[in-house]
Design a protein around this nucleic acid. Sequence first.
DNA 1: TTGAAAGCGTTACCAG
DNA 2: CTGGTAACGCTTTCAA
Lengths: 344, 344
Amino acid sequence: MPQKRVTSLDVAKRAGVSRTTVSFVLNKTSHQQISPETVLRVQQAAEELGYVPDESARALVSRRAQSIGLIFSRPTVRISSDIFLNQVVVGLLDVVHANQMRLLLDVVEDLDEKNTYVNLVKSRRVDGIILNGPRFDEQALDYLAENDFPTVIMGSLPQSHFCSVDVDNVAAARTAVEHLIHLGHRQIACITNAQAPFTAAIHRLTGYRQALENAGLPYSADQVRFGNFDPQSGYTQMKSLLAGPVRPTAVFVASDVVAYGAISAIHEHGLSIPGDIALVGFDDVPMSNFISPSLTTIRLPATELAVKAGELLLDLIQGKPQEPCQVLLPTELIIRQSCGGKPS
Amino acid sequence: MPQKRVTSLDVAKRAGVSRTTVSFVLNKTSHQQISPETVLRVQQAAEELGYVPDESARALVSRRAQSIGLIFSRPTVRISSDIFLNQVVVGLLDVVHANQMRLLLDVVEDLDEKNTYVNLVKSRRVDGIILNGPRFDEQALDYLAENDFPTVIMGSLPQSHFCSVDVDNVAAARTAVEHLIHLGHRQIACITNAQAPFTAAIHRLTGYRQALENAGLPYSADQVRFGNFDPQSGYTQMKSLLAGPVRPTAVFVASDVVAYGAISAIHEHGLSIPGDIALVGFDDVPMSNFISPSLTTIRLPATELAVKAGELLLDLIQGKPQEPCQVLLPTELIIRQSCGGKPS
DNA sequence: TTGAAAGCGTTACCAG
DNA sequence: CTGGTAACGCTTTCAA
């Protein structure tokens, strides 16, 4: 007989009070004044019995699931090598812990209408949702918007009125490419972090283009490739770039992890970094300081973004008026060895 | 007025039937025979109204939370750079999706008694638990054992009777070190993947020791360091190893990510890999094929482990008799460049 | 074949 | 200050 449940009634009996009183004590419902000794008796009884309230029952009546959903908007395969996500989880875990809540994790695959986060919302399993890495074609969000369900976007979705937390991807990418330009590079290629539907990919690409154009350099689609979250895609796209008619002297890879693959392809081609080709990444994931060559990159405050998103969401859930709702956190160019800006 | 909830009663009214019928239709309770046209009418009504049952209510009465908990037994900081976890999440997500369940993520920090998974269990938030990376001092598990709550350990916990899914860490580590020995190395150091309380760390260390002893080589604690899940620890411990009196010609690093740090330290010391020092890792995370030098390592079937763990857990939850409950999956030595076993 | 009614364990209102 | 009692939305037994 597993799970001999302890209910609030058991606690009540043991403490010689009613269920109501137990509830008041355990929830610190201070409206009602309860004698200190009763409080103690109840607490003791609860302690002895190892009583923990049933969350389903509590959720049913309080209309609070006491948990939030973290949704990754991408196929599961694209999660396997994206270390960036770990930092998001860590940040969110901290926030939910601080608020006695729980974290539910899910994924929405390409345009998968069946298993969307809308179900999560409608079934009241979560009190709010954080959508990570939105795509332009995000459609299920409309429902959330109409019902103004507590939602925070991690990333940017133009023309949406959701609360969001992000960095200025355009500016950050521009900074990365400008660094390359200042170093004297003129033939600069770009491998994005993800496919086109992902907003961050387009924004970083835009930054790349702006930097080129500001410097009077031509932008050519021939020098652009789309990565796909993992090193393999970086490897493949870099190969493709190297097979082209003009070899770039520098590459801006809009994701560190994708850059690892690009580095491998460059080495395999017998070229050196930064000697033959300079490289700037994006994200500054924990390994980037340790690989060879160490990667010059844009630091993204991943955990802070997550924490901010979590806090914003909790405010939303608690109905706190939250107006300046599009938060941008700063990025930073971290100069290491991969573009020769620093002694090797 | 956010969230104008649609209840089963609304559906019933619209379909011109009772709540009972709605429930029967939607849950395919085939015990009762319902006329096909009624079924259709109900389904249509539910569809039109966008009805999704309230999970709290359902959980309360059915005593099923329809979700499982994935618990990482380590401080959150130790999650940030462990890409291995992503694969676990991916595998589990697949399993829960296939079973209309959800995945709840949590962490238990060092000996943190307050916020343990026991609460998760007692509050009925999850129907079962997967504990990833157990420590020897895991104490909260006792409660689960006593109440035989559905639990699967990812990793090994000696003397426990829980279902578990793991690889043979001892044998795998032995294989890795034997590879080094066959290559002619005699002075082989070891950096573990984690601190001593983590069972996997000790098991891999044991494999290292066995390989040495089988080959008649002396085991010396001087040649052993404890990593801590991240590249930084690998870097630090490798520095410490290099500062010692005897320089190893090979190092077995029981985690790829930790190995990245070790590689960096070796390079910084002006030594080459595999020329001066050969390296074998453990895990075969997605980047290891792309870094320089590419890492010879033990492939751990991470996703498969997770899937197996998830399936085992679901069987347990559904009360299916599950006797051969300690599953070991095979590992494989992947030879790349970091120990010179393969042309560079 | 369908419907009425009784809970599931909690919170919260309203008397005592 | 404390204790009945009515919800919360669903499933399920039992009648009709």
